[in-house]
């Protein structure tokens, strides 16, 4: 044994660029094959010789087929090949879920956001990745396709551990299907060691509204356990409440009490716990502010259209 021999370039493997999804899935059945989406996680690993493979199936020609948004009343289906950058333009999602643009802004730097994809990030399953946190929060159905079958898997059954998933080698994530409350606002906050880096601790939350009352809420936090986790019972405390300072304090303290973060070289347990509390507080404020802003804009636009009518 000796130190890892970190390389400059990858070891040899083959390259395939199928023109159709079907072809791609057939190719993926081969031994040691990997899909190549943005390459922003896969190729670094290959350069460093952390991963060794037989071949890649480049998805660039099938990408356009996997860039779609299908919006139904309470559901949103997003193609897996959207790039982080594309998802950061919330107009793409028709304003349905601004959480995507909030989260995307925290991923890496411009070059990575332009290239890396939602599906790639979900498949890579870095526990500190922004999309893994967002998926933990929204718990979508992942639409998985292989040459043999197409199946749906809820995200909570998909993520098995840090960089471990229930995805088979030949399976492609084609889309994520999210159920969205009719009216919801979101918060996303993060502290990293340097802007654009993976989070030390990050929080994503959603608040569903019944007029100005909280109908439903979900909270997810990364960096306090091996993979991001949710807080169902704390979230339930918010239901039927009105946003208030007291509520924020309550949730913050409940979260601080509930997390049991690890200590590692990057940060100690107490600091991670503290961040979890602070970030939940900030994220709640974002979600509440967005609600009151939305209220104001709605009021304004009503006023305006009425004005036009007269």
């Amino acid at each position: 044994m000796h130190c890892e021999v970190f390389g400059l370039y990858p070891y040899p493997f083959d390259y395939f660029r199928p023109n159709t999804l079907e072809e791609a899935l057939v190719l993926a059945q081969g031994d040691g094959m990997k899909f190549l989406a943005g390459g922003q996680s896969l190729v670094p690993l290959l350069n460093l010789h952390v991963a060794e493979i037989k071949g890649v199936v480049d998805l660039q020609h099938v990408a356009s087929a996997l860039k779609f948004v299908q919006s139904q009343q309470d559901r949103l289906r997003l193609g897996a090949l959207w790039t982080h950058d594309e998802l950061s333009h919330s107009s793409l999602l028709g304003g349905r879920c601004p959480l995507f643009s909030q989260a995307a802004a925290f991923i890496g730097h411009p070059r990575i956001r332009r290239r890396g994809t939602l599906g790639g990030s979900i498949a890579h399953a870095d526990p500190l990745a922004e999309w893994i946190l967002v998926m933990t929060l929204l718990d979508p159905q992942l639409i998985l396709a292989s040459a043999k079958e197409e199946r749906q898997l809820p995200f909570h059954d998909y993520l098995l551990g840090p960089m471990m998933t229930a995805l088979s080698d030949d399976e492609l994530i084609t889309a994520v299907e999210i159920s969205l409350p009719e009216k919801a606002t979101y918060g996303f906050t993060e502290v990293s060691r340097r802007p654009g880096d993976y989070a030390l601790v990050a929080t994503a939350l959603s608040v569903g509204w019944d007029r100005d009352r909280i109908a439903q809420a979900d909270i997810a936090i990364s960096g306090v356990s091996d993979v991001p986790r949710t807080f169902p019972s704390i979230s339930r405390d918010m239901c039927q409440e009105y946003p208030s300072h007291g509520l924020v304090e309550h949730i913050k303290h409940a979260v601080e009490a509930a997390v049991d973060p690890p200590s590692d070289v990057l940060a100690g347990a107490s600091y991670r716990r503290h961040l979890a509390g602070i970030l939940v507080e900030k994220a709640l404020h974002q979600a509440f502010d967005e609600m009151s802003n939305a209220g104001e804009t709605a009021a304004k636009s009503i006023g305006k259209s009425e004005g036009e009518r007269t």
């Binding site: 044994m1 000796h2 130190c3 021999v5 390389g7 400059l8 370039y9 070891y11 040899p12 010789h49």
Partner: peptide
């Protein structure tokens, strides 16, 4: 990280593979 030996090869990849195959 202290250097132990050096593998010389015709390509960088072969040198890396060679280095990995050294047993200490």
């Amino acid at each position: 990280g202290e250097p132990i030996c050096l593998v010389i090869a015709k390509t960088p990849e072969a040198a890396e593979k060679g280095a990995r195959a050294i047993g200490v």
